[in-house]
Computed example of a mutant assay.
Amino acid sequence: MPLPAPYPREILHSRAIQMDGYLRADGLVDIDLHMTDRKPDEVVFADGRCLAAGDLLHDMALRLVVDQNLRIVDAIACIDASPYRVCPEATEVVRDVIGFTIGPGWSAMLKERFHGRKGCTHLTELLRPVATVAIQSLWRLRKGRAEPTDSGGRPQKIDSCYAYAASREVVKMRWPAHFREDDTD
């Protein structure tokens, strides 16, 4: 069901984010992230430059190369449009994620390494949801592998989101032994 019709309105800002995962010929996976921002009005920057209405305020891209265990083996970013001339210098900082594994602690690591003046706010915004894209990209490659379980043999996906709640139909179908009829959490 779509959103209801909005009250009459005018656009103030437009952001588009595209995230794609690609299997490379060498078995690694590229996660490409691209973000653009546009304003419907002319913008005059502090240095006097003028951005025409509808032109790109931000145009940023990032590529992470991961192995099938989600370890980052390479990272590169580019900034083709930004409000300040110094912004493209911030792209080198993304290389600091090389060697990290996307998984638990990802968000905390980003906050620690790229908070404030250490990094570009917008590139960091692109890095935050990369875990979901990377996991979804690896789905086909991991299909057929055993589900990760905790020490008691319970699939780790159970209770990880609304659909996987122990009392929901998805768990009843996939892991009937772990289904709980009266889950009150």
Rank of each mutant, 00 (worst) to 15 (best):
I158P: 01
V66N: 02
W139V: 06
R142A: 15
R15F: 05
A146Y: 05
H178L: 10
L70N: 02
D74I: 06
V73W: 08
S14H: 13
A5K: 13
R145P: 02
K172A: 08
C50M: 14
T124G: 00
G54T: 12
F45V: 07
E147T: 06
Y164W: 15
R154C: 13
H115Q: 11
L123E: 01
A25L: 14
N69K: 14
H58N: 10
M1E: 10
P155A: 10
D67Q: 13
R15H: 05
D47L: 03
S167P: 00
Q136D: 13
R15G: 05
G119S: 03
T132N: 12
A166Y: 01
A16N: 14
R38Y: 03
Y7V: 15
T121P: 00
L3G: 11
M19A: 12
F100K: 11
P176W: 11
C120E: 02
Y162N: 03
A163Y: 13
D59W: 05
R95E: 15
V44G: 10
R9C: 08
R154L: 14
A163E: 09
I17V: 15
L64C: 02
L12F: 07
A134E: 04
A46I: 09
P4I: 15
L123P: 01
S107E: 09
V170W: 08
V94P: 00
W106T: 04
I11W: 09
P2N: 11
V86A: 10
C87M: 06
A166Q: 06
V94N: 01
R71A: 13
L70D: 01
H58P: 10
G153S: 13
D74T: 04
R174D: 07
E92L: 07
A52W: 08
